[in-house]
Design a protein around this nucleic acid. Sequence first.
DNA 1: ATCCAAATGGCGGGATCTCCCCATTTTTGA
DNA 2: TCAAAAATGGGGAGATCCCGCCATTTGGAT
Lengths: 184, 184
Amino acid sequence: MLKMIVPDMVILDISMPGLRGIEAAREINALYPDIHVLILSMHKSKEFLSMALAAGAKGYLLKEDSGDELLQAIDQIRKGQTYLSRKLINEFPSAIISICRGNYKTDSDPLTPRERQVLQLIVEGNADRQISEQLYISVRTAHRHHANIRSKLSLRHTADLVRYAIAQGYITSHPYAAIPIRYG
Amino acid sequence: MLKMIVPDMVILDISMPGLRGIEAAREINALYPDIHVLILSMHKSKEFLSMALAAGAKGYLLKEDSGDELLQAIDQIRKGQTYLSRKLINEFPSAIISICRGNYKTDSDPLTPRERQVLQLIVEGNADRQISEQLYISVRTAHRHHANIRSKLSLRHTADLVRYAIAQGYITSHPYAAIPIRYG
DNA sequence: ATCCAAATGGCGGGATCTCCCCATTTTTGA
DNA sequence: TCAAAAATGGGGAGATCCCGCCATTTGGAT
């Protein structure tokens, strides 16, 4: 993957949805602990930041950040420090503080229990309306959870959600309901 | 499943999407060949009919058919004959003829090659627009294929399609694309 | 030759999703 | 106790989906 050259620093250009970029960072960190990993991400979320740092990243910048900030980040990381996107710091100050205290999530599951529940229903083929009826919440709230799930995972399509859920082991059984049988 | 009683006839009330009802018919036919299986189905499609007969069903009625026709079907099946929904016969005469000649599909995959291709793209997370661009067809045609797939499988939601595709082994690998890695 | 399935493309309307914005209440954790 | 997170609910705009209906072209099978 890294061929013959062992660089001092790797810039992970995460332009894809899902958690593959995080996994890549984790792998690099495990195989080459001396390599500094700087993540240049499209994901403007504290969940991704948290997971990235948990995976051993030394820096986290957004795609939309300036080239100047990139140079500054590279410089600072080479000195052995950690650099985070200023925009992200301004956006989620409390989460950053929490992370700085070492409280980043080590698990790769950024969803809340309720969101996992909604995801389960989505994957089972329920529309938002049906989800709202089953959970006794408004369609709005079902939409909200749905949107938050998509946002946190950066997965735009339902199909992606289903594949993600299956890969993560959310789906336990019953691909279809049982067939009622009557005697004639 | 059938408990202690072994009935002469089983009416399979297929009100669920997917191919579970067909599988149930196949099981019953394999375990109790003497039991006549009459399928009372919501699926007004020749694909389901074909698969039902291939699975050993002796009759195929639609939910929308009248009670009179149900009685007639039961009577005819008890005499050892096969009964098919009149509506279905009128709807797909040529397919019925083909089936009567023994040409029903033994496989459980009613999709055409093109439809399988489209399904593959759907479950990979592509919207119809993107599918049309990849296959060099109009969005309309992509819609058409998509609709035909849903119709044939009686699966309304994308999530169901994804689960079906995974269960059928359509999905081989690459849940997500590879991450581009650059050297800094 | 003729029928038919498969693939192509279209129209219209209503439902649904997607993505922004916003708020309040409850629960949890430090 | 106090701040943050989680869960709840809403508006609106635009894209997309879903489901009927329709037609044409092509190629394969009888």
